[in-house]
Every structure is written in structure tokens, then in C-alpha cells.
């Protein structure tokens, strides 16, 4: 079983769409994982109903027991996150600002502060409309720790893939270069970066590639909306050559792309799809590389 992680640095380059098309057009057994837990969208293309899900707890939040609190204010002095405020002599902890470090609870002379486990989100083990498995998650509203939730989604996807005897786990990663991305990349066999020929596309590709390089992972790149700016596309090509990274495919700027997505369809799904052969070719290239 091989794990392929799709990332992009910049958002909106087509990470989710490409992941979906590859999963749809490949003939191998694939388990999908959506690690963009902040803005999970892969399920929208695969006709998934949310079931009960598995609760995911991560970190803690502090809460003051007002019956025990003497309002001495020590908690407020030690909190480095400005989460504790005093109104009319009463101390209250803001659940959004609280970092869950537990410093206040440790030094409260009345032991009036309790640390409660924080439900960060829910994880779902679902079946797609093509009868493949997909593990995905929903981050709680104003919840933290999406990096840890990403790690759990990946762990679960591997369990499901083993159970199903899948050949590949295909992971839709998160944008950016911070903790959710690093979590997405851990344990990957191959990283696919989707970029676009724009000033920001190139800038973000370079930054995310620097992160990928630190993990020493095999990497390939797809340029989406290629003909939008041929000179920027050439700039990307030169950058990849210099860094010895494979350019796997160039996808054209094509109405079919946006039209399919507007209808909630996978690109390459509709009859006489212009883009389908490009994705099939890309997948073939992939299999040879991995």
C-alpha cells in the first residue's frame, strides 16, 4: 500500500479536484482521505452522507468553578494568552482565547479551575457513490489543533485501507506550510504538488516545496490552468528543472473544469470529457514512478 499526498501551498489551485479525478479514473483500489479538515470539500464530489462519526478529542480548555473561586486574580496574572478577564470582580475564561496549557489550573490556590477535554471535531469513515472508502473529518466550530485531527484522519485511512486491501491511500492535503500540512505529509510515499502559473502560484509552490524537501519525500508537480500565463508556466518549469523535480502534467484552463465543479461533478466524469485522457495519462505516469 502506497500513500500519495496532494498539497498546493496556495489554496484554490485545484488540489481537491485533481485528487477526485485521479481516484475516479484509476482502476486500482483506492482509499481516500481528506486532510483539509478546515475546509473539507472532497466529500461533496463523492455523494457522501454524514453518519454518526467518531468524536475526536484534542487538548483541553480551562473553566473556573464560580462557587469555589475567591477572585484572587492569580490565574489572570499567569495567563499569557489574555484568556482570563475580570468583570465586576468575577473572573471568567474565554473559551476561544484559552490555549489549554493548564498553567492557571495548577497555581489556583482554591483548585477552582478545571481542565476539560476539548472535542476538536469528528471523523467519518464513509463510502462514496462509487463504493470506495473515504475517511474525512469536520473540525468543530472555533476548535483548535487541526494538525492533530489531520494525523488521526491519516491514521484511520491507513486502517481502512489495510482492511480493504487498497493499493493506494490518496490524501487531499491542506493549504499553507504550517502544522496541518506537516501532519498531512508525515508518512507519505509520494507528494504531488498542484500549482498554477500566477505570481502567487509560483511564490507558494517554492515555499511548500521547501517544506516537502525537509521531509526528503519523492515529489512531482502538476501545473493547473497552464495556458493562463505561458511565461509563468515556463518559469515554473525552469524552477522544477533546477530542483530536479518531475513535471507530471499540465492541465489546460478549460471551462469543463469549472463547469463540472459547479455541478458537483468530478472533472472527467461527464461523457466525452476533454480532460479525462490527461488525468488517465497522469495516473499512468504515477504508477510507474511509485
Amino acid at each position: 500500500m502506497k500513500e500519495i499526498v496532494v498539497v498546493s501551498g496556495k489554496g484554490g489551485t485545484g488540489k481537491t479536484s485533481v485528487t477526485a479525478s485521479l481516484a475516479f479514473l484509476s482502476s486500482e483500489a483506492i482509499t481516500l482521505a481528506d486532510c483539509d479538515v478546515d475546509a473539507a470539500n472532497l466529500h461533496l464530489l463523492f455523494g457522501i452522507e454524514y453518519d454518526e462519526g467518531e468524536e475526536f478529542y484534542s487538548g483541553q480548555l480551562a473553566e473556573i468553578d464560580q462557587n469555589e473561586c475567591l477572585n484572587c486574580g492569580r490565574c489572570k496574572t499567569v495567563c499569557h494568552f489574555g484568556a482570563i478577564t475580570e468583570t465586576d470582580g468575577q473572573h471568567v475564561i474565554d473559551q476561544i482565547d484559552c490555549e489549554g496549557c493548564g498553567y492557571c489550573a495548577r497555581i489556583c490556590p482554591q483548585a477552582a479551575i478545571n481542565m476539560k477535554d476539548n472535542m476538536a471535531g469528528k471523523i467519518y469513515d464513509s463510502t462514496t457513490r462509487f463504493n470506495t472508502s473515504m475517511v474525512h473529518a469536520r473540525l468543530g466550530i472555533v476548535a483548535e489543533n487541526s494538525g492533530k485531527l489531520v494525523a488521526r484522519v491519516k491514521e484511520k485511512a491507513r486502517e481502512v485501507a489495510t482492511r480493504n486491501n487498497s493499493d493506494y491511500v490518496l490524501v487531499d492535503g491542506s493549504p499553507g506550510i504550517g502544522c496541518p500540512v506537516v501532519s498531512s505529509l508525515s508518512g507519505a510515499d509520494y507528494v504531488l504538488i498542484i500549482t498554477e502559473p500566477t505570481v502567487s502560484g509560483i511564490h507558494d509552490l517554492e515555499r511548500v516545496y521547501e517544506v516537502v524537501k525537509q521531509f526528503d519525500l519523492e515529489t512531482g508537480v502538476v501545473i493547473n490552468k497552464n495556458d493562463l500565463n505561458i511565461s509563468k508556466s515556463n518559469e515554473i518549469k525552469a524552477y522544477l528543472q533546477k530542483n530536479n523535480v518531475e513535471l507530471l502534467a499540465k492541465l489546460p484552463w478549460h471551462r469543463e473544469f469549472s463547469e463540472s465543479l459547479a455541478q458537483g461533478k468530478i472533472v472527467g466524469e461527464k461523457k466525452n470529457s476533454m480532460l479525462k485522457p490527461i488525468f488517465i495519462e497522469l495516473w499512468k505516469k504515477f504508477k510507474e514512478l511509485i
Binding site: 489554496g11 479538515v37 478546515d38 475546509a39 476561544i96 473540525l139 466550530i141 472555533v142 476548535a143 483548535e144 487541526s146 491542506s174 493549504p175 499553507g176 504550517g178 496541518p180
Partner: peptide, 10 residues
């Protein structure tokens, strides 16, 4: 602002 709905955006 950054994209998403978690800590950096908040």
C-alpha cells in the same frame, strides 16, 4: 487573512 476556519483565521 489566512484561509480556513481554524486557529490562524480566528
Amino acid at each position: 487573512s489566512p484561509p480556513g476556519t481554524s486557529c490562524p483565521v480566528i
